[in-house]
């Protein structure tokens, strides 16, 4: 029980700070909106090509905006050396990891919930698939991204060039996740059957499982670095 109470305290602390300053959320939302505006100028909404690239555009916006948030997720811990204060607490280090994952997940889902409808409206995209399936894919894709992204953000937080280093080491690792998320989102948008989407959902599910387990085991060492 203590473990979960500590995770709850960490999430409360991070969300309280974030909703007070809105540093992560505002930068993620502004970036997502910029991507929407740029792509809406770049592609003709009536073009057939748009239907094919639309799922990719959405995930590009989500992931790039998400990286902005991940880069900031350990900034507060570096100020006043608060990460040291956390390490002194009688808590398993994985509680710190899960606390950060939940906070990042909440913030990314807020950003996605606001920007996705705007994407669909601005691109005049006729959505014919299942909303529930789309939510499931977004949840699985975002969770996998946040799970590995939080781990790598902690790893790079102590480097001078963390904002550059994080995308460089994160992008190669999330390639399977991005492919799975884009393919399944595309299939849902054109109203494909569940049997067509299921293999991609399995990819996302397995990815999530691997990349929540590995950081859970290695987070101790990351904080030591």
């Amino acid at each position: 029980m203590t473990f979960f109470k500590q995770i709850k305290a960490l999430v409360w602390k991070d969300l309280k700070s974030e909703f007070r300053t809105k540093e992560m959320l505002s930068s993620m939302l502004i970036f997502a909106f910029l991507v929407i505006v740029i792509f809406s100028f770049a592609f003709d909404p009536t073009d057939e090509t748009l239907k094919e690239v639309f799922p990719g555009i959405i995930w590009v916006a989500f992931i790039f905006a998400g990286i902005l948030g991940l880069n900031r997720s350990f900034v507060a811990e570096k100020q006043n050396n608060s990460i040291h204060g956390l390490m002194l607490c009688p808590a398993d280090r994985s509680a710190i990891y899960f606390g950060k994952v939940i906070t990042n997940l909440v913030l990314m889902l807020i950003m996605e919930a606001i920007s996705l409808p705007i994407f669909i409206i601005l691109f005049d995209y006729s959505f014919s698939g299942s909303i529930l399936k789309l939510i499931l894919v977004i949840l699985l894709g975002t969770f996998g991204f946040v799970a590995i992204g939080t781990f790598l953000a902690a790893l790079t937080a102590n480097t001078r060039t963390s904002e550059v280093l994080l995308p460089i080491i994160l992008f190669p690792v999330i390639v399977p996740l991005v492919i799975g998320a884009v393919e399944s989102t595309g299939a849902i948008f054109i109203g494909e059957e569940m049997s067509e989407i299921l293999p991609w959902l399995k990819v996302l599910g397995i990815y999530d499982l691997i990349f929540i387990t590995v950081p859970f085991m290695l987070f101790d060492f990351v904080l030591e670095v």
């Binding site: 602390k13 309280k16 507060a76 100020q79 006043n80 050396n81 608060s82 040291h84 204060g85 002194l88």
Partner: peptide
């Protein structure tokens, strides 16, 4: 059983 007071405060400025 341990408390630490450092020149770093370990406090969160936005709280």
């Amino acid at each position: 059983d341990i408390g630490v007071i450092s020149h770093h405060t370990f406090l969160y400025g936005d709280l």
